[in-house]
Every structure is written in C-alpha cells, then in structure tokens.
Design a protein around this nucleic acid. Structure first.
Lengths: 250, 250
DNA sequence: TGTATGCGTTATGTATACAATAGCGAAGGG
DNA sequence: CCCTTCGCTATTGTATACATAACGCATACA
C-alpha cells in the first residue's frame, strides 16, 4: 500500500458509489459524458476495483449507461422519459395501495401514515409556507410514500418501487421540489394532501380499486405539474432532475 | 498468466454471469445457499474480478441477495412473491399497452404483433397440442409480449418490464410453462390468445383503458393458473421457478 | 460441564500489475 | 488533396497478490 489515504469507516465500494452519484446529480458529470475509470479513481479516492463495482451498480440504478465498446457514460433523459418514470412509479404505488387495501392493514400499522398526514396538515396551515416548512414537507411526503409502499407487504413490489424511485426526478422528493417552482405551489400541495387522505380512507375501508385509482391520479397530477415547472425554468435550482435532462430535446 | 484456459470469444464477466445464472436456475445452487467466490471461480473458469462483477449484476437482477457480513446468497422466493411478481409484470404491461394505444401505433408497427397472433392461432389448431408446437408457442408468446412492450415507446417502462421479467417465473415463458402442467392447458392457451386478440384491437382503436385492462386480466389469469399448477406438482420439471421456491413455505 | 476467550483458518474487500483492444493521429500512396 | 493503413497511446478487461475481518474450534477457567 502506497501513500493512498484510506477511509476505513465505510466500504470503499459504497464510498465510490455515493461520490459518483453525487457527481452525476450535481452536474459535475454531464449527460452523455463518458466516465473514465481513472478519473473516477482520482475523484473518489477508491481504487479501480471498488470503482468498477460502483459503476456497475449505478448502471443498474439507471444513472449510467454501458457503452458497447466498453466503459460507461452518464445517461441522458428526455422530458418524456421523466414524465413516464413518474407515471410508472404512480402505477406501481397504485398497485401497492391496492395490495394494502385488499390484504388488510391493522389500525396499528396505519398509524405512521396518519401521523405523516397530520404533520403535513400542520405545515400547510402556514400561508405562504416557509422554506423550512417546505423542507419538512419534502421529508414527510417521502416518508408517507415509503410507508405506504411497505404496507403492500410485497417484497417484489417494494423492490421495484425502490428502483423506480432511484432516478431523482422520479422520487417523491424530486418532483415535489419541481412543483415548488410553480406559482400555485401551495394549492398543489393541498391537493396532494387530499390524495393522501383519500388513500388512507380507501385502505381502511378495504376499497382496493379506489386506493389504486387515487395513487395513479396523484402521479398524473405530478406529471402535469412537472411539465409546467419545466416550462417556467425559474428558480429550478432545487430540481435535481435538471442535471440529467438531455440538452436540446423537444 | 498460469495454465488457466481462457475463452476469448466472449467477455469473462458475461461468461461468469451466464454460468452462475444457469447454476441457480438449474438448482445446482439451492435457495438460501451462500455462494463462495472461490467456488464460483472454479466452476465458471473466470477469475475473481469478473466473477464479482457477475455477482453484483445477479444481485441487481434479483437472483442473489447480499449478505450483510459480506458475500451473496441465492435468493429464496415464497409462492406469494411469485404471484406478486407476475401481477406486477401484468400491471407494467398494462401500462405499456395503454401507452401504445394512447400514443398511437401505425399499421406497419402492429404487423409483427399480428404475425405472432396468426402463428399462435395456427399452432392451437392442433388438439391436443404437440410438444414441439407447445415449444413454438412459448417462443411466440414471449415475442408477442416483447413486441407489445416495445410499442409503448417508453424506454423507462421497457427497462422496468425487462427487470420484472428477469425472474424466470415472472417471464412470459416461465408461467406459460407452469400452466402447461394443468389438465385444462389447451383451454388456457386459447383464452390467453383471446386476450392477445383483444389487446391488438384495443390498440388499433386507441382505447387505452381497454388495452390496459385486458393485459392486467391476462396476468391475473396467469396468477390463478400458476397457483393451481403449484398445487398439482405433477410434471413440473418444466418450471424454472421451482428451483427458487422457498423450501417449507405455505 | 458450560461458557468465554483467543488463535487460526478461510473468505471477502481492496489494490495493483498485466493484457488486449479500440480510437486517434500521422504518414504514405493513389 | 483525399483516402487508406499502420502504429501508438490511452483506457478498459482480467488476473492475482495482499489486507482484513469473520467464523469456528479448541482450550482453559469457572
């Protein structure tokens, strides 16, 4: 071992994966750009083996694309890709809600969901909402969606939803942030909260079809709003999707 | 390099991945069993680096599970996992069919689908169907589903469907094989063919909701039949899922 | 006899050396 | 002047050596 600095607190592979993901999402690496292993070794501080493992995982995650002749490049997404990904996740979450409703959920298990709901209600009482409250909203909303997914009790479905959320713009936090750029943001959050309320009610009453339908509607609303947000490209700095959008699409 | 025999025709990583997948699906490696890298090196003929890459990919594919203390084990699936995976794929294919219908598909693009349909019709004319014809059916059916998926023109969705089909029992071929174990197999194939006919018609007439509904029904039928097939465990040798089912489930 | 601790072995995580290929540039011929 | 070909360089693919951590066994003490 040479004079390489080694951080032994976490696995080198995980360290490299986090560092590379960060570079991609922050825009240091541009869409379409080839990722050089050597360069990744320098920027992440890990050696080539863990870097390669990280690259494979990021490819599976959907952030990278394998180049046929070898190596990887940062994947580029069209606006259509992004809205499809959101609708896709909505469809999956709809299935999760239906499973939860049909298979039955005890009052005890529904508790965390209701807590999220109440906490968000509290936040939305502020008009206009503060930056800090909005930030809490993002966290609570992500938690709501995660808990709902878990309630499906279906490991294959949970796994698939996690993968569908790996892309930043398709994650619950991602598109909420995008929506925040719109002037009618507050109204949008309130409508979203109504969806949350309905899905809980549908699950409680074991109405699978209704639970599924509302989650899909929830996603369709998100798609419409994301489209609008991408039109007004005002203060979109918040939007982590931006770093991944194909240049010169449309 | 020692006296190791190296096959230079394909990448060592791919070779190892194929070999390991084969071992898993053939049952050489049992569910829950830990995979030793050293052993994998011996059985695949590749060295540790490509073997590790293959293991990471197989984990992402869903065939392996990472062990917290290090290494990988063969993933075990419950019967519920299997039926959920099929329903999941049906839901995704439903979305694909809806996208195809809503976005519009030219007569030219629909041609391959109709060819599959006609070819399957031809096969089903035999009563009872021969083994060779059944084998052709499996291939044609897989092709039908693959083409339909492509018609969605949605790369994120296509990607997700591919991943949902990675598990052998969730692939179109897998569950058709399972159904073949049932006494009413011929009747089931005929009903499935009706679904195929309806989805084409719905896409042609741009009826998104109908196209989606029929694909979901198609999957639900498959789930019911798979459940039945797993009850009569007669000649289930055909079923590649069997190697992955948890021992002592139910 | 049972439990705990320490040592040894084995397997995984990491680093690096080596091999091969693809891409690019320069030079020569048509 | 353009096209083709040869060779070099840079980057990826592969192999293996080394470091480290976990598991198991044995032994000793309670």
């Amino acid at each position: 071992m040479a004079e390489r600095e080694v951080d032994r607190s976490i696995s080198q592979t995980v360290k490299a994966q986090l560092a590379l993901r960060d570079q991609i999402l922050s825009g240091s690496l541009r869409p379409g750009e080839r990722i050089s292993e050597l360069q990744a070794v320098e920027t992440t501080g890990a050696s080539r083996t863990p870097v390669r493992m990280a690259l494979v995982r990021l490819e599976e995650e959907g952030l990278l694309e394998a180049i046929p002749s070898g190596g990887f490049m940062v994947k580029a997404f069209s606006e259509r890709d992004i809205s499809d990904s959101i609708e896709l996740r909505g469809t999956l979450e709809g299935l999760a809600a239906r499973f939860a409703a049909e298979r039955g959920v005890s009052a005890r298990e529904l508790e965390p969901l209701k807590e999220c709901l109440a906490a968000i209600d509290e936040l939305l009482r502020q008009v206009p909402i503060s930056i800090e409250a909005f930030s809490s909203y993002v966290t609570l909303n992500a938690r709501f969606h995660a808990v709902l997914t878990e309630l499906s009790r279906s490991p294959p479905l949970i796994r698939q939803i996690d993968r569908a959320s790996a892309l930043p713009f398709a994650s619950p936090s991602g598109f909420v942030m995008a929506q925040s750029a719109l002037p009618e943001a507050q109204q949008i959050l309130i409508i979203g909260q109504e969806h949350h309320r309905v899905v809980i009610d549908a699950i409680e009453n074991r109405e699978g079809a209704r639970a599924e339908a509302i989650m899909r509607e929830h996603a369709r609303l998100a798609v419409r709003n994301l489209r609008l947000a991408l039109r007004n490209r005002t203060h979109l700095d918040l939007l982590p999707a931006l770093a991944l959008i194909k240049t010169a699409t449309d």
